[in-house]
Design a protein around this nucleic acid. Structure first.
Lengths: 298, 298
DNA sequence: CCAAGTTACGAGTCACGTAAGGATT
DNA sequence: AATCCTTACGTGACTCGTAACTTGG
């Protein structure tokens, strides 16, 4: 099981296509086909169905491991590289859009720059996967990622990286102002399973995650929003294109931008929160990264 | 960075020899040399010093990642294999010698067999590394491993496997009956750094671990004991060959077997305990493995 | 001077690309 | 018919083993 094969397996599974993966990785389709065949013959199981291309039961198991394995491989390379490279007097932070808002990153960075005026700080906004990958590669010193969990539960643990909880806030369903549910004190997630939903993986939690925490099927996307802007998402919800979930802490800004035509109803069942975690490689005490972690969590 | 290369790197680092690793892996020395050279040129760092063969700073970093990476690779293979293979109505448990004694494994297994008389149980005794590897490979359903930590701390976390604390007991230094320290109510670990020690990696904690928890150098081996029997180790200590550390819970049996010619003094500084953890892949609720975990921890 | 790792070189294998073949929509 | 994956086959690169070379204790 060479890492090369695992890497193309992940690419194929993610794109659900041999040819798309080939284009992505710079191989021909035939090469991809051969690599998957080699992997399947090594493990003596079919890993992917063809037409449509989707992981089998065994493939799903492997995929879980492979993603974390490849992440750790990146981390190993970065860790080794850190030995030779001198520690830069700069701090690179990544964050998902909602994590940046609800973690108080802005305030923490302001205080950090007051304490260390000469420190160069760069912030990069991206989705959770890209942020974690960048941290693992060493491109970022720290990343703030978010997701939906039960209160107190951590997000899916990330093998080589340390993760610390930064904030947990209640979530709310965003509705048009005239919606029947508007004004209710709370709502159960399961009761919204059959509503029309906005699929907004760049901002809100992926609908698959919503299904997982709700424990029921449903939450079918009626429309997809590919941006990273919570206000734009709220505007779509206000216009009645579908529902979405946002942390209450992110609401004021989004509501204001949408012209107050929306209403938010806290989700009360099951107990679910929007959680933000800071992930990073082991940071030396006193380093800018360690300092920022202290400011974020303390 | 292919897994093949990482695997030979780990073998070379562990044996501290290219030729020994070659013999172990069934290659020629030249091939090993080429593989290490390829890895070093890929990462653009020297990973090993030659004569003597030892990890450099960068190599040590890579080694940490590589061992856990290869373990996880085994786990991935086992996980995929589990999908096809029908779940066996048997339970395979591994344990280190001291873990088996101090965890109450015998009692837990007795109760389990009373609850499920038809269940086939096999127990395998080996060192921590072998036990963890076997669990990762799926050869064992559960493993009991032990080590020295601060109270409440877990042992070094193992990426893909879940670990749960089972028992923590105080440790004691084992001395000949007439030793000046015999009869003292307690002793600090650091004060024993310059004594003669028995290196017994098959039973007691490796001396490197003792150094780590004591926080000082020393603890040089005067004699090596390669067996896995605590009583034999206690007998060596009684005969004055050197000191060793054993959990207090394992003492009665060992002392009785050695004919009472030994004395044990609890280690009081720093706060250190002998901790036993049960490790396993995710077990379905109601499975024999889950049941045994409940009996061990509950 | 011997043990142990490196380098050179030839041979076999392996993985890729091209191209043709089949299956599914 | 078009798309997409698979199979066949030739070529090039890679990796291994043999053997000569080098270096350090």
């Amino acid at each position: 099981m060479e890492t090369q094969l695992l890497s193309t397996f992940v690419a194929v599974a993610r794109r659900a296509s041999f040819s798309a993966a080939a284009a992505e990785l710079g191989y021909t389709q035939a090469a991809i086909s051969q690599q998957i065949a080699a992997l399947e013959s090594d493990l003596e199981v079919q890993l992917l169905t063809r037409r449509p291309v989707a992981p089998t039961e065994a493939g799903a198991r492997l995929l879980e491991h492979a993603e974390s394995l490849l992440l750790r491989l990146e981390a190993a390379r970065a860790d080794v590289a850190r030995v030779t490279r001198a520690p830069a007097a700069a701090l690179a932070v990544g964050a998902t859009p909602l994590a940046a808002v609800t973690s108080g990153l802005g305030f923490a960075l302001a205080r950090l720059r007051r304490e260390r005026p000469r420190l160069k700080v760069t912030v990069r906004c991206a989705d959770s996967r890209a942020t974690v990958t960048a941290v693992a590669r060493g491109d970022l010193d720290l990343g703030l990622v978010d997701g939906l969990t039960a209160p107190g539960d951590s997000l899916a643990p990330l093998a080589p990286l340390t993760a610390l909880g930064v904030a947990e806030t209640a979530i709310a369903a965003i509705l048009p102002a005239g919606h029947p549910l508007a004004g209710r004190p709370g709502v159960s997630l399961a009761s919204l399973a059959d509503a029309r939903w906005i699929d907004a993986p760049g901002v809100a939690a992926p609908l698959a995650d919503v299904r997982r925490v709700a424990g029921v099927e449903g939450f079918r996307p009626a429309i997809r929003y590919d941006g990273t802007d919570a206000a734009a998402l709220a505007a779509l919800a206000a216009a009645g294109h579908g529902l979405t979930l946002l942390p209450l802490a992110a609401m004021p800004a989004a509501v204001a931008a949408a012209g107050l035509a929306v209403s938010s109803v806290p989700v009360t069942q099951p107990p679910v929160v929007h959680r933000v975690e800071v992930v990073g490689a082991a940071a030396r005490p006193g380093s800018p990264a360690a300092e920022l972690i202290r400011l974020l969590t303390g």
